[in-house]
Design a binder for these strands. Structure first.
Lengths: 375, 375
DNA sequence: GGATCTACTGAATCTTTGA
DNA sequence: GTCAAAGATTCAGTAGATC
């Protein structure tokens, strides 16, 4: 199904409708397929490009010939140069179709991620984080010649240094038991029932765990966003996007993978109604002006507020500003910073009012107000 | 003290004696100093080059205090091109002086490591591993704009694909409780008594922990080997090399750093057994966030949980929070305490899910998860 | 003397909105 | 585009003071 989506054109800020193949898999070369998509139409790209540098696969040698003796410096340069060109080409297309406030994720290992990261930066993307996927059950190093290669790296980048982007800070913090989500994530590798198999053998050699994509999409997209995966494989990105109420576009050349991905996504269930509803709520609570609490009688004019240690005391005025005993006045934030002689202050957590069980931050009143007024 | 060391010359494989400034600090530009060293004379290089952080303005913590940023001149570069040239130049010299069976380590962050890694590969080095230093106590992301940047990356490379190198597999396995050493290492950042201070302020803004260098040198060098650090700073590499019975050569331009490093290394004592044990990462019981169970499908969004007496009922949301039927929401602990009107609540034992044999505490799911993922 | 509280700090690319 | 005001934001650990 092709869906019409509002996309803003560049020159004139007029919304036009452009065809986006939402929730479909394009069976094509990734660069060709991206060329068919309109500029500035995608919210997020997740890319798991091939990184079989040393194997001399079809990417580096279209004729399938074997790479020469690896001591040959020229050949090495040739290989890296070919990989770099491929990377530049697909990243340039990715950049064209991303919205100005979109972001891109690329996953790789030490074989390719340094090439990718350099080119990401060269093309003007701005790295926001690199994320380490720590595998809880990596394949051991059988020969004992190196450290167990127990992680892969993801680069997350915005369109530029000043570009805006989506980061659902609160949801990540909640997901991590009220601690900021860190740049190192632990997940098992994809196995068990989740791993797609046909006749007992795995369909795709590097199928990514859904939990990984779950966190990626929950962190960096909003419900209804369009997520593109140019190296779709067996469709982990699509299955998770569907579950999380995001749209996906997959690009995959290999018919076997497309077939497996199609069946898989078909079977994936979207989250149930209540979970979806809660997710569609904005990730940030709506702003509430302090004055609204005053107007609505939660803290009527004349009320007294103090800081948590009762060092400062102020009276609430009718316009929602505070008047301190020493004569200073201003918004809850301004007065808090003035009194503490600090550059800034969050008045919501700084100021308190007398409750039945001691001091209560005015932020609690705001929560109360939100609970009472939000649907 | 200059010591005479046998070094093989390149053209003819005849051993000649060449002066190596063993266990000394050369106060000079790193490229100039490396030029003064003979080719193929160094067993291992550990390099902690400037990261090219490109920081913006001041950064304030939530309490209003200012973050002491790395604003030193040595970290300023005009462009990626300038940084790349600098990197190519020092890496080329490093390559010249390394023995054919030597290895190089470079540490960096996402700001620079992709540039470094690409150039390492371009110059013919062969990456053996990349190692993630997970910081147990990183600086938080104060503004809630990104994931906490909680790691740095080290690249470990040999002179070429077929080159030999030293890897003390057994010692690494022993150090890691008889499990293969993985590519992710956890250490605290350098602080406490180990952090060099003068008049209460840190001498160097980016002093590395000795535990990190300890593992690096123990893994990749033999006793008596020569370790070169072209960005010596306050001499962590030298202090650890001395304690491990390796020779070091330090290169550092800044006289203040050289002075501090000299005194520090002078005071360093060879390690005894207890100190070696202390160098191991502290083992902490693994912490599992409730959200991890949600992400991994043990309790998918939309699942219903109840307390043991079925008085309260809540739905699991996509971000790992709970939404109660009465509209209250929060983490498993928060909602449990809210509903019971109690000051605190252990959500792990409070909330249950329907199992085939009746209610099962979500804590049981956590145990199940730990069993499945922990070695 | 031990427990508790307070202040400080660390390689950081660290805001958003509306006039 | 700029600018000013409003609003949102921290974790683990050490060191020293206080109870």
């Amino acid at each position: 199904m092709t869906t019409m989506v509002a996309v803003k054109t560049r020159k004139k800020k007029v919304a036009t409708t452009v065809a986006l193949p939402l929730d479909r898999i394009l069976m094509d070369d990734c660069i060709e397929a991206m060329r068919s998509l309109p500029a500035k139409s995608i919210d997020c790209i997740f890319a798991d490009p091939p990184y079989n540098l040393q194997l001399g696969g079809d990417l580096l040698r279209p004729d399938g010939s074997q790479v020469d003796a690896v001591d040959d410096d020229w050949d090495k340069f040739d290989s890296f140069a070919a990989y770099d060109k491929f990377t530049r080409d697909w990243l340039a297309e990715a950049r064209r179709i991303l919205k100005p406030d979109g972001t891109i994720w690329v996953i790789g290992s030490y074989h390719n991620i340094y090439r990718v990261g350099s080119i990401v930066q060269d093309q003007g993307f701005w790295i926001l984080n690199d994320i380490v996927w720590r595998k809880s059950n990596p394949m051991p190093n059988f020969k004992g010649t190196r450290f167990t290669n127990a992680h892969e790296t993801m680069i997350w980048a915005s369109m530029g240094e000043k570009a805006r982007y989506t980061f659902n800070y609160r949801q990540m913090k909640t997901l991590n038991d009220e601690l900021q989500m860190r740049s190192d994530w632990e997940f098992p590798i994809c196995g068990g029932p989740e791993r797609l198999r046909k006749d007992g053998t795995k369909v795709h050699p590097t199928q990514k765990p859904e939990a990984l994509l779950y966190r990626v999409l929950l962190a960096s997209t909003k419900p209804g966003d369009v997520v593109l995966d140019p190296f779709f494989g067996t469709g982990t990105t699509g299955a998770v996007a569907k579950r999380l109420g995001r749209h996906f576009i997959g690009i995959e050349r290999d018919a076997t993978y497309v077939e497996a991905a199609t069946a898989r996504i078909e079977a994936a269930l979207p989250l149930d109604e209540s979970a979806i509803r809660a997710m569609r709520a904005p990730s940030k609570p709506p702003r509430v002006a302090f004055g609204v609490l005053v107007e609505n009688g939660l803290l009527p004019p004349g009320s007294v507020v103090v800081d948590s240690k009762r060092r400062f005391r102020a009276t609430v005025l009718a316009d929602g500003s505070l008047l301190s005993d020493c004569g200073a006045a201003g918004s809850i934030h301004k007065l808090g910073s003035t009194l503490q002689n600090a550059p800034s202050c969050n008045g919501w957590t700084f100021w308190h009012t007398e409750g039945s069980k001691g001091l209560v931050a005015v932020d609690a009143l705001r929560q109360q107000w939100l609970l009472a007024t939000q649907p």
